[in-house]
Amino acid sequence: MQVPAPVEYARAISVEHAIGLLGRLGEEARLIAGGHSLLPMMKLRLANPEYLVDINDLHAELGYIEVGPTEVRLGAMTRHRELLESDPLAAVCPIFRDAERVIADPPVRNRGTLGGALCQADPSEDLSSVCTALDASCVIQGADGVRVVPMDDFHRGPYETAVGHAEILTEVRIPIRPGGSSAYAKVDRRAGDWAVVAAGAALWLDEHATIADARVGLAAVGPHTTHLPEVSRALRGREPSEAAWELAGGIAASACRPVTDSRGSADYKRHLAGELTRRTLRTAWERARERGGASWR
């Protein structure tokens, strides 16, 4: 089996401690949480950090799912399995359960974390699309304090995020707006594989049951998660209908930039971007309608 190169190891006991360690150890230090992105890269010697700062002991501090009336707060150390199994989260953001069902596999979900997934910034990664669709913000903490970065600014490019050296992503905040719901769909070649294409959609209805807002995030069709503001603009104020989903799907297909690789042809991925955009918007609408029906009457 391939094995990592030599590395030094330290355990952080608090967020501040971790930030301090990162600052002291320098640019060659990396955080390790679940390890399911970093350790395989280290084994293949594609990543060769000199120091690892283990933040698994921060699970007590950063592993939480808090569903409030206007906001969901997810600790960055929340593990995939916890996101999958949380009923309160599924009630307000069903997209998480949709996505977590198809992320990697059960043993990996037992270790992998929300923060690790987002910070890996793989263009095919699922939770980035989920958070994009939900208009989430990322809370980044450093020695100088805390800053909040919207999802659209979080990804700087493939495998590159707004989290600077000696900073930690500590929390993801998701606004809860009335009349909304969400859905996720992914096509993969086999269970546990990365997405050929995946789409996350969130949609909000106003009191007249027309579309107040909608957001779509696509995975695996560009250098990083693709947010489609054109879809949001096109759908706002529209009646929910097959025609609306068609319109959105068309925009998604033409706006994305997939490349041909062993997961599929660019044409096929473009087709999927449209198809999955239609499907997730339709499901999100159906869910919003069910929930809305209860809350407005």
């Binding site: 190891y9 390790i32 690892l52």
Partner: peptide, 18 residues
Amino acid sequence: VVLYDDEPVKSCTVLAVM
């Protein structure tokens, strides 16, 4: 796969020190 705090985990993706 081994059980790690009672849950299945891939032991090739955990450092022993962790």
